[in-house]
Structures are given as structure tokens and as C-alpha cells.
Design a protein around this nucleic acid. Structure first.
Lengths: 301, 301
DNA sequence: CCTGTCAAAATGTCCTAGACAAACTGCACG
DNA sequence: CGTGCAGTTTGTCTAGGACATTTTGACAGG
């Protein structure tokens, strides 16, 4: 009954794998193996799209496509444990509490989740909440996804609700003329905002003035915005899904377009695996971000 | 001095025009005319990318590419006035006030903008605030962009700040067991959330239970989520930038995957130009959305 | 046993060029 | 003044080839 097939453009949108890659894999590895419709166009089955999505995710974690495609389908649980440099381990004693929060999401109790999080926020204070609750939670949800324990839509709900929490918290912080002025955004192609929002929260707590541009600001616009807002710092965030190879070049290009007095910070899991880049401060973890802020204060303030 | 050139992938990311389209235009229209780098790869200048971005935006408004490409560069202001079915005209008497708000954004005074908006919210009440302030403001900003009066990054700031306002407002609304249960999200490829957020605000105000999944939920996942959350309605939003031709097919595909008892609503400027679709309620404007909610109550409640 | 080097293999991205379906336009006819 | 058909415009797909870049694996030297 499944008339549900995807054309190649739909697969690209859904998986994040480019048309070129999809065709190349088919040519080289013999997978995927789409049917053809009346026009000779590829028609992918929902199954294969599902599998492709999984493969993409595992690739973002550092696995090689050749191996993944060869592996049957027990990759699921088997390949998860290839840890990222995801920061200084979750305090293990908190694990059960975090699991409870995740369970709320998995039972689809959005209201209860928000309530529990708000309580936790009140108890821990904003800084520890971000570092000891939100960050590890986000990581767990990601892991859960890879192992098939968490559905995509559950992750979406989690992300959306958590973003709301953080933005609310930020809104309650005192305003005023504060330093440094940090412009926060992501480059075109990077749509994950949660990490940047965590950083913003911490920065705002530390008394920085944050200018949030949301996601996907074109390179040139970032430069203009930095000038218009008299920013001291431009802070970008890269998720693991961002094409790794492009990051250094993009950072350099942006660096060239920025006044030398403006610092360029790059954070997120995506920068954990790239090398040092001239004129750019890399901060794979939130702690690194706080350290960078402290360093700025020490020199520029 | 501009070592700044874009390869074709970067242009695709920055403009939203696919590689195929970019090559096709070059072949057919003789524009754009990228240089070639050492490898024979296209290298686009920042100028041309800028122009391409503008063309894309005007196309989203209903213009044809052939004409746009032929037109020199005074398209800017000249082509803006091709109104979308963007809803029942802004009450003209409010125009100057809205302009003041936009000016705040254009002067990069985020704090002042938030404050002014919050005041307005208190004065108008949430419903009128959404319909008479946020919606027309969003439309104005869009127009301003096309005419070169508003920078991209200014639009980004506007969008981000306004989203925060709406989410905050939603958070203050009373919770509880409410009907209908509306699952809100966008399809993969659609990243604009502001419209959906406006709808969510209105729905929540009317006592609906909203389940926000954020943007870009894969088709199959929407089905799963609807079941898991026992949704009565799945509401999607399409911006003008969403590939028009794909919308009807996507809606039908989703419709097939949903239990018949679940209504499927599609809103946003993107659906203003598509024809009726079996089993889907189209709502180009916010008023249509409220009407749909009332209709649901009349029949299903 | 560690480390550096270099070739081979793996992988992604770009290129050209052609075919065709779908959407839109405009004209002719009723 | 509407309606329908034919022509034009536009986007997307297909195919295979070339090549830059990264990773792997083997081997030599310390």
C-alpha cells in the first residue's frame, strides 16, 4: 500500500545527503537501490530513506560511509559508542535524574517536562542549569537517537521546548550597557541553534551584551552586522552535521572581512575536529566559551 | 582586493538556488557569469551572489526569472509592488507606528525594540498584538528587504527578537487539558518559523493545546508524532520561499500517512498560490486559521 | 615500540550536455 | 469576453567523467 516513494530531491532534503552523493553511492557501493518511475527518475522507498538518514547521522559522528553501507542493519546500537569531544563528562551521579527528564520527553509529556525543567532551573541556578542539565541532556538525546531509543520527533519536541526555556531565561536577565558586545549567529547551512543559545545564556549571565541574529546569516551580512552593532566579538556555532571540510575556509573568509579588533569565536561539536585557525578562537565546549570570555576581559576590557 | 569568491555550493547555500538552476541559468540566460578557478570550477563574485539573492527573493514574490535576469539593477525598488495575498490589508492608520518599530530595528536598537513591542503587547492584548502588529510588521520587513531599505541581518535580528516575544507570551498562557490538540511544525526544507509561531499564539489563546515540534520534521515523523501525541490536527506552515510545485504532492503524501480523523492544516504565504487539495485545509492568512479552528470546534468538539 | 613518509584507496564535489515534464503565456476562436 | 490549445519558459533529472582531498596502510628509520 505504500505509494510513498521519494524522488531524489526529497531524499536530499530529508537526509541532508546531496544528490551528487546519492547518485555516487549508488554507482560505487550499489546502495541505495531506488526503483525508477515512469520518467526513469529514481524513486526511493521510505525504508531506504530511513536507513540513509541513520547513516548520515553516524557519519556526522565520525564513521566512514564505506563501512556503514557494508554493515547490515545492526549498526544501530552497535556503532553508537564513538564519543565526541563532548566536554568534561557528565557528573555521573546526576545520570538518573537526567534519564527521568528524557523519559518525560519520550512519554510525550511536554507540560510535565517543562515543569520539571523549570524546577531544576530554580534549584540549580541558570549557569549550572545550562552546564549540568541542558548540555548533557542534549547530548543524551543525540545518543538516544543514534541508538534508536529516541524518535526524531521526540528530539524535535525536546529541542523546541528547551530553546523556549533558555530564551525565557535570557529575557529575565537585566539589560543595560554591557561588555563585551557579542554577536551570535550561525553560517548558512547550519540550522542548529540550541548550542548557540546555551552559550548566549552563559555569556549574558556573565554580563555580556548579546545580539542574537538567529541562524544562517550570510557571511557578508555578518560583517555588516558586526559594524552596525559595534560588536566586540562575533560568535558562531557549528554542529556535528556541518560539512567539516568547509569550516576552516569559511572562518578565514569571515575573518578577512572583519575588522581586526573584532574577535571571532567558533564553538560547537563541529569545531572539535578541526585544527587551529589563524585569528579564530575555537571553543568546542561551553567551558572553553567561558574561558574565552574571561580572556577577553583580561586583555580588552 | 576581493579574494572573496564563492564556489557553486556556497552560492547554493547562500541564495537557495540549486546548483542545477545556477548552471542552467548560465547556459540559458548568460547570467550569472562566474570566473573559473584553477580547477575549472565556477567562482562567483560577491556582487553576483548579492544579485542572485535578490532575484531569488523577487521570484518568491511571484516574478519570473527570465524577466528579472533581463532587468538591469533598478529592479530593486521597481519590482517590489506585487502584493501577495498577505491578508486583509494593514489598518492604514497604524502605519506610522509600525514604521517607528521598524526604525528601531534599522537603528539596531534591539533593547528599545523589545521594550516598545512589549508595551504594545500590553496595550493591545495578545490577539490583536499578533494580528495587528506582528503580522504586518513581518510583511513590512519583507518588503523593506526587497527594496533594499532593510539589510538581511536586520531582518534576522527582527525575526529572532520577535520569535522570543511570541514564545514568551505563549509560555504565560494557562496550561491544562485542552482541545483540539494541534501539532505544529514545518516540512524539511522549510525553516521559517515566525508564521507558525503567530498561529500557535492565536491557537493557544483560543484554548487549543499546542505541540510545537519546531521546523523541518520529516514526513514520516509527523505521522508518528501525531499518533504519539494523540493530535486532532496537524498544522504546517509554508513560506513564500518553499518550492511551490512540491507543496501539493507533499501534502497528499502526508495526508495518506495520517489517520483520517486527524485534520491537516496548511498555512503561510506559500499556500496562497496553490489550488485546493483533497483532505487539506488551506489557510493563507491568520484569519483563515482562526476560522478553521472555529470550524473544527463546530463539527468535532 | 614509536614516528614519519608516501603511495594507494576512499570519498566528495564539480563539470558538461541532453531530455523531458510541468507551469505559464498568449492568441485564436466561439 | 471567456476558453482551450499550442508554444515558450523553467526546473529537475539523468549519465558518466575528472579530479582534489582525506584517510588508510605499509614500510623504513630512529
Amino acid at each position: 500500500m505504500s505509494t510513498l516513494t521519494y524522488n531524489i530531491a526529497a531524499v536530499e532534503r530529508d537526509t541532508g545527503l546531496s544528490k551528487d552523493v546519492l547518485r555516487m553511492w549508488e554507482r560505487r557501493y550499489g546502495f541505495p537501490t531506488p526503483e525508477r518511475d515512469g520518467n526513469g527518475d529514481r524513486a526511493y522507498s521510505a525504508d531506504q530513506v530511513e536507513r540513509l538518514r541513520l547513516i548520515k547521522r553516524l557519519m556526522d559522528m565520525g564513521h566512514r560511509p564505506g563501512k556503514l553501507i557494508a554493515t547490515p542493519y545492526e549498526e544501530l546500537a552497535a556503532l553508537a559508542p564513538r564519543r565526541m569531544a563532548a566536554g568534561p563528562a557528565v557528573p555521573e551521579e546526576h545520570t538518573p535524574e537526567l534519564d527521568e527528564l528524557i523519559d518525560l520527553v519520550r512519554r510525550h509529556e511536554g507540560g510535565a517536562y517543562l515543569q520539571a525543567m523549570q524546577q531544576r532551573l530554580a534549584r540549580q541556578g541558570l549557569q549550572r542549569f545550562v552546564q549540568d542539565t541542558v548540555a548533557p541532556l542534549a547530548q543524551r538525546i543525540g545518543e538516544g537517537w543514534e541508538q534508536g531509543r529516541v524518535e526524531v520527533f521526540e528530539e524535535h519536541l525536546f529541542t523546541e521546548l528547551t530553546k523556549r526555556l533558555l530564551r525565557q531565561s535570557i529575557a529575565t536577565l537585566p539589560a543595560g550597557v554591557r561588555r563585551p558586545r557579542i554577536l551570535l549567529t550561525t553560517l548558512p547551512g547550519e540550522q542548529h541553534l540550541l548550542g548557540l543559545l546555551m552559550a548566549e545564556t552563559l555569556f549574558a549571565l556573565e554580563g555580556a551584551e548579546c545580539i542574537p541574529l538567529g541562524t544562517q546569516t550570510p557571511l557578508l551580512e555578518i560583517g555588516r552586522a558586526a559594524v552596525a552593532h559595534r560588536a566586540d566579538v562575533v560568535a558562531l556555532s557549528f554542529s556535528a552535521a556541518f560539512p567539516l571540510r568547509q569550516i576552516p575556509a569559511l572562518l578565514l573568509q569571515l575573518r578577512m572581512g572583519l575588522d581586526a579588533s573584532i574577535e571571532l569565536w567558533a564553538g560547537g561539536t563541529g569545531v572539535a575536529r578541526i585544527g587551529e585557525t589563524e585569528g579564530v578562537v575555537l571553543m568546542p565546549t561551553l567551558d572553553d566559551a567561558l574561558a574565552a570570555l574571561a580572556a577577553w576581559r583580561a586583555t580588552d576590557a
